[in-house]
Every structure is written in C-alpha cells, then in structure tokens.
C-alpha cells in the first residue's frame, strides 16, 4: 500500500512535470503568450481525450495528468462522451460543462471573492 501511494506521487510528478516542461519549451521557442499556451493545452487535452490517448496518460500520471490544463480539456470530452452514451446527441451540449462544473464555478465564484478582497501589488 505504502509502495503504491509513493508510486502515485512519482507518476504525478513525472507526468505533470513533463507536460509543464513541454509548455515551457513552447513559450521559449515560439514566444507564445500564456493565454495561447492555455488555449493550446486545453484543446490538445480535448483531442487526446477524444482519441482515447489521454485516458492512458491519466492511468500513469493520475493528478499529474488531470491537474494540468490538458486534463481540463480531457475532462470536458470525457463528460461529453459519457452523456452522449446516456442521452444521445444532446450529450454533446450538456456533458462537457457538466463534468467541469465544479472547476468552472469554483474559479468564477472564488475568483470574484478574491478580487474583491485582495488588491494587486507592484512588482519590484
């Protein structure tokens, strides 16, 4: 059991680290802004999810694959496919956001609260 837990951490570290490292190479080589990187990663995750590839990465990396934004795209697609299986084509429009609801809602709500409570500080 201990062995197993350690392996999940190792998998998360390596897979998550590699995904972020790819992002860094893209930033340094292509001068893509962070907004474009985020869009690229969420879309890539969705496509890899649709192809059934990301599922395998999640099995190895656990949170290392679900925490990066590619995992967000994967999650949207996974939810879509699940809903399509249950409700047909309508699922294409309900499944994605339903699966990502917690993340999106938390980001909006806590984000709003935080922006009310905190103020930006100048960098030095």
């Amino acid at each position: 059991m201990m062995q197993n837990t350690f392996m999940t951490y190792l998998g998360a570290f390596i897979v998550g680290g590699i995904i972020c490292a790819i992002g860094q190479i893209l930033i340094d080589k292509t001068k893509l802004t962070s907004a474009r990187i985020l869009v690229l990663f969420v879309t890539t995750g969705a496509v890899l999810g649709g192809l059934g590839i990301y599922e395998k990465i999640v099995q190895i990396g656990g949170a290392g694959a679900t925490v990066p934004l590619t995992g967000f795209g994967y999650n949207l697609v996974k939810g879509t496919m699940k809903e399509i299986n249950q409700h047909g084509l309508l699922g294409a429009f309900t499944g994605g956001v339903k699966a990502a609801a917690a993340g999106i809602t938390a980001a909006v709500f806590f984000g709003y609260l935080a922006s009310v409570a905190f103020t930006p500080k100048a960098k030095r």
């Binding site: 907004a35 985020l38 869009v39 879309t43 967000f72 795209g73 697609v77 699922g91 294409a92 956001v97």
Partner: peptide, 29 residues
C-alpha cells in the same frame, strides 16, 4: 471591471475547450 475582465485570459480557454468538446462529441456520436 471585475465581472468582464475576469475572462480576458480564461474566456478563450473556455471557448476553445467547450467548443472542442462539442465537436469531438458530435464526431463520437
């Protein structure tokens, strides 16, 4: 200010993420 600008960077992520999932969902269907 807060309400609209919140999505200047995250908005595109949602637009492309959700749109991709719809397109992929339709293909899957």
């Amino acid at each position: 200010g807060v309400g609209a600008k919140m999505f200047v960077i995250a908005g595109p992520v949602l637009v492309y993420g959700i749109s991709a999932s719809v397109v992929i969902g339709i293909i899957y269907y």
